[in-house]
């Protein structure tokens, strides 16, 4: 089953490689991983999307907790949570397609953030499946480039990941 794991870790050189190394050394899957500093500059927050049996997910949580640089770990799937991913898509936008792409972007609540005479760059935020749907909705041959951040997640309501 797919799990989204959030963790706080020390914002130190090498901390990311400890997490990435753990996943490769123990044969765990990484679907996506993102990391950036938090409001506290000494700490980074990482979101990992992984998959595995309940036993494997339990081990992943324990092994992550064991890393000295990791401050706290939360499996967002243990409760209600919100998940978002950002995607930037550069598309070939000429002739009829130019209008059509704008319409579809509007439907998905995307924004065109860069325009050239031949291209649009569309910004889209949502769950991974929404981003997938958008890519399916537009003419595949028009896609020049896509970049996705991977999922970020946060617990709903009182579920807070902190020190």
């Amino acid at each position: 089953m797919r799990h989204i794991i959030s963790l706080l870790m020390e914002n130190e050189a090498g901390a990311l490689s400890r997490v990435a190394g753990l996943f490769s050394a123990r044969g765990y899957n990484i679907e996506s991983l993102n990391v950036a500093p938090t409001e506290d500059p000494t700490m980074s927050r990482m979101t990992i999307v992984t998959s595995g049996s309940d036993e494997v997910i339990e081990q992943i949580n324990k092994q992550l907790n064991k890393l000295v640089d990791v401050v706290s770990v939360m499996d967002l799937n243990d409760g209600d949570h919100i998940e978002r991913e950002l995607m930037l898509v550069k598309v070939h936008a000429m002739g009829e397609a130019r209008e059509e792409l704008k319409r579809i972007a509007d439907i998905f609540r995307g924004r065109i953030i860069d325009v050239s005479d031949k291209t649009y760059t569309i910004e889209l935020t949502g769950s991974g499946s929404k981003l997938d749907s958008f890519l399916q909705a537009i003419d595949h041959s028009l896609i020049l480039e896509t970049v996705r951040t991977g999922a970020s997640g946060i617990g709903r309501g009182d579920r807070i990941l902190k020190l």
Binding site: A13, G14, S17, R18, G21, A25, V68, D69
Partner: peptide
Amino acid sequence: VGITRPCVKHNFL
């Protein structure tokens, strides 16, 4: 630090 990372409890540079 990279070479020893998988076989130490922790390491520091």
